[in-house]
Computed example of a mutant assay.
Amino acid sequence: MPVLFTDRDLGKKFPEILRDAGLTVERHADHFAPDCADEIWLAEVGKRGWIAVTHDGRIRYKPNELAAVIQHCVPLLVVIGHAPYPQLAHAFVATWPRIRSFIERHEPPYIAKVYRPAPSAATDDAAAPGRVELWYPKVDSYRQRSVLAAGAAGKIG
C-alpha cells in the first residue's frame, strides 16, 4: 500500500478521513515544523518514496518547489476544488481506485491533478469517483533536470 503524505494546507480532517478509509497517511505536522519550506518536505517525501498530496496548485509555478519535485522524484497529487476539506477528502477516497491506477502507470517525478466528480455524477451517486490528470510530465533526461535545477537556483536566466 502506498504511503500518502498530506501537506499542511490540507489540515487535520483530510488525512483523518483518508486513514479512516484504510489508506496509509503521514501528516506534515507529524514530521515537520509548520513553517518548513516546501522544498524541504518535498525532498524528504521523495527520499522516503511517499506520494505527496497537496491543495497548493501553485507549486507547479514556483521554480524552487518544481525543482524539488523533479530532483527528488516526487509523485505529487494536487487536490483540485474549492470545497470544505472533509468533502475533498471523501471525493479523494471515492477516486482512490483511479488514483492508485494512475500511480501504478506513471513513474515519478510528476504532478497530477485530482478532481472531484462532476456535480451531476455526485448528485446521482455520493460515492462517484472523480478523475486524475497528469499536469506536469516526468522530466526524462539528466540534462533537463540539471537545467531546471540551475534555473530554480537562479544560475541561468
Results as ranks from 00 to 15, higher is better:
V3N: 13
R116W: 09
Q144P: 02
P63E: 04
R60G: 08
E65D: 04
V79E: 09
Y85R: 13
G46A: 03
Y115M: 05
Q71Y: 15
K138R: 10
S146V: 14
E65M: 02
V114H: 02
R60L: 03
L148A: 00
S120H: 13
R116N: 11
H106R: 02
T24G: 13
P84T: 08
T54M: 05
K47G: 11
D125C: 00
K12N: 09
S146A: 12
Y136N: 09
P137T: 01
I80F: 11
A91E: 10
P2E: 04
Y136R: 12
I111S: 02
V69W: 01
I59A: 08
A149D: 10
L4V: 06
L134T: 00
T24N: 12
P86S: 09
A153V: 04
I80W: 14
G154V: 08
I70E: 10
L66D: 04
A29N: 06
A152L: 05
P129M: 05
K12Q: 10
T54D: 05
P117H: 05
R58G: 06
F14V: 05
K138A: 04
D140A: 14
A21K: 08
S101K: 15
H28Y: 03
Y61H: 08
P137C: 04
S101G: 07
G130A: 08
R48A: 11
C73D: 13
V78P: 07
R60K: 14
A52V: 06
H106E: 04
F5T: 00
G46S: 03
K47L: 12
D125A: 03
R60M: 04
A126D: 10
G11N: 01
G11L: 01
P117G: 07
K13I: 15
Y142G: 14
H90G: 08
A126F: 06
V53N: 04
H31W: 15
K155G: 11
G22F: 07
L18R: 00
K47V: 09
F102Y: 15
K13S: 13
E133A: 14
R131G: 08
